[in-house]
């Protein structure tokens, strides 16, 4: 596979603030690359640099072999960009928005007709062409934005929180769409806050306070040795009332760390801890039905743990 996005020591400073610190990345064609991190950690700044909207302070990056500083105009013809906010014209109809972007990308008439049909079908916008963009639902607005960013058949598409604030069904539909694109060879660079979306990415990067803390396939990240110090292991403790149980779990001498995860508790326990022993212990304490089993850490566990380790490191 060929490398389509490559960053080396990419750094962006805004005055005294370092928004992105010495970032190295290599992304292969056809990947769905998940870019995660808390708000303000520098995700959007990275995307904006890669798209040529911002100049890096130091370091360099290439998109499809083109330099992001020197060949910005060439890059713009090859990438699609869907920003966090809906950034199409609300007083234009769906069709007018699509036609506008087609014209901006300089698609000729025959090409335009074909591309328009393709993206409209892909995004499921048939029957809504006459509607003003302002009156679309959140999910449909995102579909329209995606359709517009795909018109010129870009090889790389940047999506900055494409599913923020839309309902679960619409979210799933957007992701189905992304998988279709990736299967056709398009490289997708996606930021998200949703762990289930991160799980679906071929690889994820986790950025915290402008530094890249982790990079790899989700299943590989879960096996990082930092997550299970001294051969400790992760357990899932399920109960009817996890909130009530949590302080009890945290007080257990073998438990190093515990957080609520969905309806259950994820706990990191010392080496040699036995699931059955934990289960009976908490069943007795809680009085309710408790189920305990050893599990691999979730992606959320990975990020929460890495963030804590990083915080302790910087404090020291």
């Amino acid at each position: 596979m060929s490398i389509v996005i490559k960053a080396e020591g990419l750094t962006k400073k805004f005055g005294a603030l370092t928004a992105v610190d010495n970032l190295d990345l290599e992304i292969e064609a056809g990947e769905i690359f998940g870019f995660l991190g808390p708000n303000g950690s520098g995700k959007s700044t990275v995307i904006r640099m890669l798209c040529g909207l911002l100049q890096p302070t130091a370091g360099r990056a290439e998109l499809a072999g083109l330099d992001i500083v020197k060949q910005t105009e060439e890059i713009k013809k090859r990438i699609g960009y869907m920003s966090q906010r809906f950034s199409l014209y609300e007083d234009l109809t769906v069709e007018e928005n699509i036609d506008f972007y087609g014209a901006i990308y300089g698609l000729g008439k025959p090409n335009m007709t074909a591309r328009r049909r393709t993206v409209v079908e892909l995004a499921g916008l048939e029957g809504r062409m006459e509607q003003l963009a302002a009156t679309l639902s959140g999910g449909y607005k995102q579909r329209l934005a995606l359709a517009c960013s795909l018109l010129h058949d870009p090889k790389i598409v940047f999506l900055d929180e494409p599913t923020a604030g839309i309902d679960p069904v619409a979210r799933r539909e957007i992701w189905d769409l992304l998988f279709r694109l990736a299967a056709e060879g398009t490289t997708l660079f996606v930021t998200t806050h949703y762990m289930d979306e991160a799980e679906r990415c071929s690889r994820v990067a986790y950025i915290y306070l402008s530094k890249l803390l982790a990079l790899g396939r989700p299943q590989d990240l879960k096996r990082l040795p930092e997550l299970t110090p001294d051969d400790s292991s992760w357990f899932e403790i399920a109960s009817d009332d996890a909130t009530h149980l949590l302080p009890l779990v945290r007080q257990h001498p073998a438990v190093l760390d515990a957080t609520i995860f969905g309806e259950a508790i994820h706990a990191l326990a010392r080496r040699g801890t036995d699931a059955a022993a934990l289960e009976s212990h908490f069943k007795q304490l809680d009085g309710n039905e408790v189920h305990c089993r050893a599990v691999p850490p979730s992606l959320e566990d990975v990020f929460v743990t890495l963030t804590r380790i990083h915080r302790n490191d910087t404090r020291r």
Binding site: L53, K76, K77, I79, S87, Y105
Partner: peptide, 8 residues
């Protein structure tokens, strides 16, 4: 911003 990532 959306316009500026296009080749306009």
């Amino acid at each position: 911003e959306q316009l500026l990532v296009t080749p306009v």
